[in-house]
C-alpha cells in the first residue's frame, strides 16, 4: 500500500499522529474518523445523502457565503496592517495601498468585490432556502439565525463602506444614517448619534465604524455562523 517509505514513516510518526488522529482517508473507517476527529470537518456528518451532493440541490450558496467570509477575513486582516482609521490618514492610506503596498490594490479589490458578492450570495441563499421550503419545522430557528446573519452581512458591508473616506463613502454613509433618523420619538436621532458618535459623519464615526467592521460584527457573525452550521448539521443537512 505505502509506495513511499519515508512518507509512510511520517504518517505513522508520533508527531503526526498527535496532530491527525486518523489515518489517511483511504478506508471508509479512516474517512469516518477524519470527520469525527477533525475540528473543521466535524460540522459535517460522516455520510451525506447522495441527492444533496447535486449542485442544483443547494447551488452551493451557503458554502460560498462562508467561503466569501473566509476570503474577507483574510484580505481584511492584511488590509488592517496598512489602514489607519483617522480622517487625516485614511484616504492617504488608501492611496498608499493602491500605489506602493505590494499587491495592495489587489487585496483591496478582492476585499471590495467579495464584500459585494457576499451580500448578494447571502440573499440568494435565503431565496434558495425559501423556495425549497427548507425553513419548515424543525428548521425554523435556523432560518431566523440565517435572517440575522443576512442583516449582519449587510451591516458588515455598510460599516466597511465608510472606511476609504472618499466621497462615495462619506455620502453613502450620510444618506444611510439619515434614513435611520426617520425613526420617530427621537429614537432615530439617538440611534444615529450613537452610531456616528456625533451628529455628522466625522472622526468619531470613522473609529466606530472601524471597530464595528473589524471586531464586533465579525465576532458576532462568526458565533452565529457556528450556530447556523451546527443547526444545519443537527437538522440533517450537509
Amino acid at each position: 500500500m505505502e509506495k513511499n517509505k519515508t512518507l509512510g514513516r511520517l504518517f505513522t510518526s508520533r508527531v503526526w499522529r498527535s496532530v491527525f488522529r486518523h489515518g489517511l482517508p483511504i478506508s471508509n473507517r479512516a474517512r469516518a474518523e477524519s470527520v469525527f476527529y477533525n475540528f473543521f470537518l466535524h460540522v459535517h456528518p460522516v455520510k451525506v445523502r447522495k441527492r444533496s451532493l447535486k449542485i442544483t440541490y443547494t447551488w452551493a450558496l451557503g458554502g460560498l457565503t462562508a467561503g466569501l467570509f473566509i476570503i474577507l477575513t483574510l484580505t481584511g486582516a492584511l488590509l488592517m496592517l496598512y489602514y489607519r482609521p483617522s480622517v487625516s490618514e485614511a484616504y492617504a492610506d488608501m492611496k498608499d495601498l493602491q500605489f506602493v503596498v505590494s499587491s495592495g490594490l489587489f487585496l483591496r479589490n478582492m476585499h471590495r468585490w467579495s464584500a459585494h458578492a457576499m451580500v448578494a450570495v447571502a440573499f440568494l441563499h435565503m431565496l434558495r432556502v425559501f423556495y425549497t421550503g427548507s425553513y419548515k419545522p424543525p428548521k425554523e430557528f435556523n432560518w431566523v439565525v440565517g435572517v440575522i446573519l443576512l442583516v449582519l452581512t449587510i451591516l458588515l458591508s455598510y460599516t466597511g463602506y465608510l472606511l476609504p473616506w472618499d466621497q462615495l463613502a462619506f455620502w453613502g454613509i450620510s444618506v444611510g444614517t439619515n434614513m435611520a433618523r426617520a425613526v420617530p420619538f427621537g429614537i432615530g436621532d439617538k440611534m444615529s448619534y450613537l452610531l456616528l458618535g456625533g451628529n455628522i459623519v466625522g472622526e468619531n464615526a470613522l473609529v466606530r465604524f472601524y471597530v464595528l467592521h473589524c471586531f464586533i460584527l465579525p465576532i458576532a457573525t462568526m458565533v452565529l455562523m457556528g450556530v447556523h452550521f451546527w443547526r444545519v448539521r443537527k437538522d440533517g443537512g450537509v
Binding site: R31, V35, L41, V48, R49, K50, R51
Partner: peptide, 12 residues
C-alpha cells in the same frame, strides 16, 4: 431514497 456516500472525500 437514502442512498448515502462518505463525506470524505465526496463532499469535502
Amino acid at each position: 431514497e437514502t442512498e448515502t456516500v462518505m463525506t470524505v472525500p465526496n463532499l469535502v
